[in-house]
């Protein structure tokens, strides 16, 4: 079973990398970019075939390692097939 975990910075957490990217887009001539926030995407392949169990395991992985919940949110997405 395949899954994706999206890790993004919480609102209010300063993202200097996103700011730098925003600036670079501006200097490339892309106008109208109001803001850029940088995050991470994990593609995970699991042996588990039960979606509920897979989801629960991925939640644990996110909480324990993939995201630092002081500054980051995470979202688990399963490929249902």
């Amino acid at each position: 079973m395949k899954a994706r975990i999206k890790v993004t910075l919480k609102n209010g957490v300063l993202d200097p990398q996103g700011k730098a990217i925003e600036g670079a887009l501006g200097s490339l001539g892309f106008s109208g970019v109001a803001s850029v926030r940088q995050g991470k995407l994990f593609e995970v392949e699991l042996d588990e075939t039960d979606p509920a169990k897979a989801k629960a395991a991925l939640e644990e992985m996110s909480k324990k390692l993939l995201a630092n919940t002081v500054i980051e949110n995470y979202a688990v997405e399963l490929d249902e097939k």
């Binding site: 957490v13 200097p16 990398q17 730098a20 630092n68 002081v70 500054i71």
Partner: peptide, 8 residues
């Protein structure tokens, strides 16, 4: 948490 330096 220790984040990326503000000046990058």
């Amino acid at each position: 948490v220790l984040m990326r330096n503000a000046g990058l």
